[in-house]
Every structure is written in structure tokens, then in C-alpha cells.
Nucleic acid binder design. Structure first.
Lengths: 231, 231
DNA sequence: AAAGGTAGGTGTACGGCGTACACTTGTCAA
DNA sequence: TTGACAAGTGTACGCCGTACACCTACCTTT
């Protein structure tokens, strides 16, 4: 009784527990509202306790990325580089979709963790195994860019979503000012009767872009690409 | 004398002056260290004075994006959609390169400003003028993603830069753990004698990816693409 | 059993942030 | 002359990340 104090002994913190809780919190309320203090509160602990397990908030974010990237199913498929890469990227997308904040965080990390490096390494390996030259692989990885994580490039489609809550007057004014944007926004979900649907099929758009890239890679590879002229 | 106080009359603030100063400050020391207080100090004014010209920090960032996007040379070239788009995107890249923080900020804006909408509208217009169907244009814009702003996808190349300051031992260990990554990193600047060069030619990588996309668009357009099967 | 190191959790405090709100002040129209 | 209005000020609040000194429970060594 004197020994055990008045509270039940907490399961002790650990880096892993801290990171998992952080991921959950970010999933629930967005990474921008994740703070060391809230995270500590969630874990029933004083804020400074976290610093015994992560050096600072940056390292916390690094660790969160590792947790996510570690979730990606890395099981090989083994029927040609193209379908292997495709499958891998779609698997990544599956995970990343469940953690919408991860896109921004991954892109903001300047130093790659071992987990991230390993992911990239195995993806490079897929192209190499398909017979791509080192140079071509290099450029191809650049061309993939963040699509290699399964990210959709969000830059475009929000405008469509936004129109859903805009007055007809406003909508009309916009149609005059940005005719092309509106035309596309209207068309985005034309099998729906409402003025503007809830945006477009993200999965389709993603695969469209991914396949476009992969087909391009294939074509270059087949015609024995070498860095023509340049350097 | 009594009228004029002891200080020279300041040129008054204006939305424009606030935004320009913010852009300069972000250029100099990065957008992450830009604060309302520092910006106010830079302008010789008390922080709250800024709020007479921008509603809050979010709107400040919106405005900064507008300043940058407004700088993009929008002059038409008029020899086919492909070279027009190419030229436009490279012009955007030219501007964005001078404001490295803009990438992150543009991507983090959820509501597009008129300036941004107009930029997108005119780009869509280029594809339309080239005879692209509305649907194809839509998908093509998604596939362009943030590359439409001239952004390089940074996800990949930093690892190369980082290796420059790593001990030989460390480097050797990494080569064992991430053989593919290292192979590419080593090759990235092979005409340089140092172990690892200062990374790769970003401009080349960007154009490589851009042309890959544009060629893909062209191919789809020529073969009269329609959204096969899907929806 | 005593001593002492160590890992994990605590409490306090500091400087920075965005911004609400009430205020002064300078300018110009009526 | 008045008095409305736009521009700038001052104070204050509640958040944030985290430095630093501290306690405390446990483990190892003797």
C-alpha cells in the first residue's frame, strides 16, 4: 500500500508508444494541431516526459514517418518491373490514404531515415532488376517524385470540391472569369445531377498519372535510353 | 514642429507593402521563420498594425502566393499546345526557383485565390486550344500536379546532397545497407572527382520529367483518348 | 544489506508565437 | 466645427517548444 502509492502503475512510456500515440492523434485531428503538450496529455504524462524518448518535435515527426512507411506492404510480386512498381506504389497509396497528414510531413523531412532510405532503395532495385541503366533509373526516380509514396498531387482538385457550397450567383460569376476551370469542375462528376459533384475519382486520377509515367519509362527503356547530349 | 513630432513621417503601410516585405523576408530567411512580429518589425510598425491590411497569417500567406504567381510570365508563344505549355511551366519554374519557400506554401493553401485560378484556367485553356477533350484535359491536369508550377519533386535528391559530409566509414556502411541508393548517389555527378558531387542537375531532371509527361499527353491525344471503361 | 549509478518522470520557467480588444491619432467630408 | 472613419498602438491571453534542475524507483556491484 505504501509501496504502490494511490495510482495504478502506468505502463511505462517507450519510443514506440509515443510514436504510435502521435500517429493516432494526427489521424484524428490533423498534424497541424499535434503538439507535444497534447500528446503528453493523451499519454497521461507531463510534456517533458516525452523528451526522454524523442529528442524534439522534429524527431517525433521523423519517427511518425517511419511508423507509416514501415506499414507499407513490401512483399514482392515478381512478374516484371512494371507491375512490381505499380503494385508497390498502390500499396503505399493504400497506407498513405489512411494518414492524410503523412504527405506533408514526409515531404517536409530533409534527412531521410533508414526506413525511408530502405523503401527508396528497394524501389530503385525494382528498376535495376528490370534492366534499367543506373542513369535512367536515376531520372526515372526523379520523375516519379512524390508519386512514389502514392501521394495524389492535390494542387488541382480542391477547386472542384469548393464549388459545392457556393451560391449560384457566385458560380455564374466564376464561370465567366474562369471558364476552363469551371468546365472541368462541372464535368468532374457528370453522372451526378447536382450542379457540381463531390469532386473526381482520386484513385482513377492517380492510376492515370502513374500509368502514364510507367508507360513512358517503359518506352524509354525499350529504346535503350542514354542521356542524349546532356552532360 | 509640434505638428510633425520628432520622427519623419513614415510612408504608410498598404496590403501591397506588407505582402512584398513578407516575400522578401521569406526569401531571406525562410518561410518557417516568418512571423507577424518579425514582419512588423521589418516594417517599423507594431505587430497589430498588420491586421489592418491582412485578416490573419493565413491570408498573409495567400497574398504572398498571389505575389509570386503574379510574377509568372504569362505571355503566349502560339506554336502548338506542347511548346506553349512547356514554355509556361519553365517560366513558372524560373520564378519559383527564386522563392524556394513558395512550393510548400502553394501546396498548403486549400482555397485557391483568383490569381491562382486564373493561372490554372489559362493552362487548361492551352490544352483545350490544342484540341484536348474536356475529360482528357482534366486527367492531364491531375497528372501534371504540382509540376504545373515548375516544382521539382524534392523527395529524392537530398540524400545525394547529404552524403557529401559523411565520413568514409559511414559511407561504406550505407553502401552495404542501401546499395541502389548509393550507386545512384555516386553516379549523380560522375564528372566530378570528389567522392560524391553536390547532387544532380535539377533543371535536367525537371525537364526530363516534364517532357515525359508532355509526350505521354501527346500520345494519348493523338490516339483519341476516351476514358476507357472507367466511369 | 549498503551504496551508488541510471533511466524515466516531474515542475518550473522562458521566450516566441498569433491575435482579441480597447485605445489613440491623423485626415477629410459635411 | 464636428464627427466619422481609417490607420496605428498597447496590453494581454493562451498557446507553443523546450532548457534545466529535481526527484524517485530500480539495478548492479560489493
Amino acid at each position: 500500500m505504501a509501496q504502490q502509492r494511490e495510482t495504478v502503475r502506468r505502463t511505462p512510456l517507450s519510443r514506440k508508444r509515443v510514436l504510435s500515440a502521435a500517429v493516432v492523434l494526427a489521424d484524428e485531428s490533423g498534424v497541424e494541431s499535434l503538439s507535444m503538450r497534447k500528446l503528453a496529455q493523451e499519454l497521461g504524462v507531463v510534456p517533458m516526459a516525452l523528451y526522454k524518448h524523442v529528442a524534439n518535435k522534429e524527431e517525433l515527426l521523423d519517427g511518425m514517418v517511419d511508423v507509416i512507411v514501415g506499414e507499407i506492404d513490401t512483399g514482392a510480386s515478381g512478374e516484371g518491373w512494371k507491375s512490381a512498381v505499380r503494385q508497390r506504389v498502390l500499396a503505399a497509396r493504400q497506407i498513405l490514404l489512411r494518414h492524410p497528414w503523412a504527405r506533408r510531413v514526409i515531404e517536409s523531412r530533409t534527412n531521410k531515415s533508414p526506413v525511408v532510405l530502405e523503401y527508396m532503395d528497394s524501389m530503385i532495385g525494382m528498376f535495376q532488376a528490370g534492366g534499367f541503366s543506373v542513369d535512367l533509373t536515376h531520372h526515372v526516380m526523379h520523375a516519379m517524385g512524390s508519386r512514389m509514396w502514392g501521394f495524389t498531387q492535390e494542387v488541382f482538385d480542391d477547386s472542384a470540391n469548393a464549388t459545392a457550397e457556393i451560391s449560384p450567383t457566385m458560380l455564374h460569376a466564376m464561370a465567366e472569369k474562369y471558364p476552363h476551370v469551371m468546365e472541368i469542375a462541372m464535368r468532374a462528376d457528370h453522372d451526378d445531377d447536382s450542379v457540381v459533384g463531390q469532386g473526381c475519382d482520386d484513385q482513377f486520377e492517380f492510376e492515370f498519372a502513374l500509368d502514364l509515367l510507367l508507360d513512358g519509362f517503359e518506352r524509354l527503356h525499350e529504346q535503350g535510353w542514354t542521356s542524349t547530349g546532356r552532360r
